[in-house]
């Protein structure tokens, strides 16, 4: 899923500026699962805004609304009837959702309330960790199912570097060394001979470096 962090309240206030009629828009997908922008988090942020503005003696209106998804036009369209009643749409979706809402409501100010961080997994309740960088040419078959691009601090295709120590990465003792994990995994699965192969220079064109990406499936088109 896509994981993010909520922005600090002070930053959100700053971005809102003088806007006092706020449509706070959540998303029911990834950001709900990682506890950053679903219905509940919308409720918390709305409550914070109400507490703050009441305290400040201001007049305001905060409407809470959570869409099934903010990355599909048909859902975004559902707020068409009342979006214009608000000064801003404050989106709690990932960066993709925020942008798609902005594309759909061209005259509206659409603000992000979330910092989108990574594609990852739930390690345990309340803890998530990065797994993929969407490089567009997956090599997990070569690396024991562990992605060195996303999980090695230097994205080394032929690691580990000299900083790997006791299973941890040189950047800090909290971070596993991806290459230790890869070697362990190759060993466990009887594929150590894979380690001897040099992974070739990567063609990054399939990744972000090749420019914004697009995917088309003619057979799915209407």
């Amino acid at each position: 899923m896509i994981v993010g962090n909520r922005k600090d309240f002070s930053e959100i206030l700053e971005k809102l500026g003088a806007a006092r009629r706020v449509l706070l828009l959540g998303c029911n997908e990834c950001v709900t699962v990682c506890g950053v922008g679903g219905e509940r988090e919308v409720g918390v942020l709305a409550s914070e805004l109400r507490l703050y503005w009441t305290k400040e003696g201001e007049t305001f209106e905060v409407r809470e609304h959570t869409l099934e998804r903010q990355c599909d036009y048909e859902y975004i369209d559902q707020i068409r009837g009342f979006a214009d009643d608000y000064d801003v749409i404050l989106s709690m979706a990932c960066g993709a959702g925020v942008q798609y809402v902005a594309e759909a409501y061209k005259t509206k100010l659409v603000l992000p309330a979330v910092n989108t961080t990574f594609l990852g997994v739930t390690i345990e309740q309340g803890m998530w960790s990065e797994r993929c960088q969407g490089c567009g040419a997956c090599i997990l078959d070569m690396t024991g199912g562990i992605c060195p691009i996303a999980r090695c601090a230097k994205s080394l295709l032929n690691g580990p570097c000299g900083g790997s120590s006791e299973g941890k990465c040189e950047i800090d003792k909290e971070t596993d060394c991806a290459w230790q994990l890869i070697v362990d995994r190759l060993k466990e699965s009887g594929q150590m001979e894979r380690y001897e192969e040099i992974l070739p220079v990567k063609d990054w064109r399939t990744g972000r470096d090749g420019g914004p990406r697009r995917r088309v499936r003619e057979d799915l088109k209407l």
Binding site: K154, S155, L156, I171
Partner: peptide, 28 residues
């Protein structure tokens, strides 16, 4: 060389490149 991670330096805010790694640089 791969190089130390920029986290340890005087510009930890910087972006790193790592287009290729040290083994691939040797090949190059």
């Amino acid at each position: 060389l791969s190089g130390d991670h920029q986290k340890f330096g005087d510009h930890p805010q910087g972006k790193n490149v790592y287009d290729i790694d040290s083994v691939q640089l040797i090949q190059t």
